[in-house]
């Protein structure tokens, strides 16, 4: 309950901050619509030459695009800005203030910055996803919906843990803000099903930069191609990475000695 209240507080601060720059909302909205339009036009071009792509119908890839935008929106709204802030705070020694607060530092650091306007991506992503499902005639049962919710949560947690580990590296190597950009670049590959890529790239996108679990696997759940194996792998990897990133974070904290002061 306490944690939920904190999230809500930070969300409100995010709204207040953005209210000062209202034009940003229109810029963000325009950018979200442009990237959605680009993605759909790209799909239209590809599917004007074929009916299926690696076994996926156009409408299934549209659902995948919805997941891609939704997850991308969540990363852009909370994870990316908070982790960048963390790295900046550690560099400048301001992180001391986070540590002195009567709350878990990892939790605080993970929600410290919320860019509310990125909600446009989340809403558009959800809209695309729902539109794709309606177009297919809402043919998913409660089992598929549950499986989808499950792998979306585990996939999201995997992505979060991965970012946290990257950002935690900052306790050892101060100036590595560019490392977050690696993920941003690789994320683009997630807008197509991972299965079409050559095996070396598929391996990278599954285990080195776990885009596959956050986007392809949930989309598979919606189109009835989710295997029990990938569901179990996603669950186990989620638990493992959450625990491991927590441990890694604690190790990093021990290394922190305050930069300035």
């Amino acid at each position: 309950m306490y944690y939920l209240k904190l999230i809500w507080t930070f969300f409100r601060i995010g709204i207040l901050n953005e209210m000062a720059y209202r034009v940003n909302f229109y810029v963000q909205l325009l950018q979200s619509i442009l990237s959605l339009g680009t993605a759909i036009a790209g799909l239209a071009i590809v599917f004007s030459h074929t009916d299926t792509l690696g076994g996926w119908q156009a409408v299934d890839i549209l659902a995948l695009l919805g997941v891609f935008m939704f997850v991308g929106g969540v990363i852009g709204m909370v994870i990316n800005p908070s982790m960048s802030q963390l790295m900046d705070d550690v560099l400048r020694g301001i992180f001391d203030y986070t540590l002195t607060k009567p709350c878990d530092a990892q939790f605080l650091a993970s929600i410290s910055q919320i860019r509310v306007w990125r909600l446009t991506d989340i809403l558009l992503g959800a809209g695309v996803l729902i539109a794709a499902l309606i177009y297919r005639g809402l043919d998913i049962g409660p089992h598929e919906a549950l499986a989808f919710a499950f792998v979306l949560c585990t996939g999201g947690s995997i992505i979060y843990s991965f970012w946290l580990m990257l950002a935690t590296l900052t306790f050892w190597f101060l100036r590595i803000e560019n490392i977050l950009h690696i993920f941003q670049s690789m994320y683009e590959a997630g807008r197509w099903p991972i299965g079409i890529y050559p095996h070396w790239l598929r391996y990278i996108l599954t285990f080195l930069v776990p885009v596959a679990f956050a986007i392809t696997v949930p989309a598979e759940a919606l189109s009835g191609r989710l295997t029990p194996e990938s569901m179990i792998t996603s669950g186990l990897l989620c638990v493992f990475l959450l625990a491991f990133s927590r441990w890694f974070w604690k190790r990093g904290l021990k290394n922190y000695s305050g930069a300035s002061a």
Binding site: N178, I179, I182, S185, E188, A189, W192
Partner: peptide
Amino acid sequence: AIWMISRILEPIIYLTVW
């Protein structure tokens, strides 16, 4: 090098798709 990733990855993505 990091900023080059997307300029290398994008052609690979569309090469794979096509």
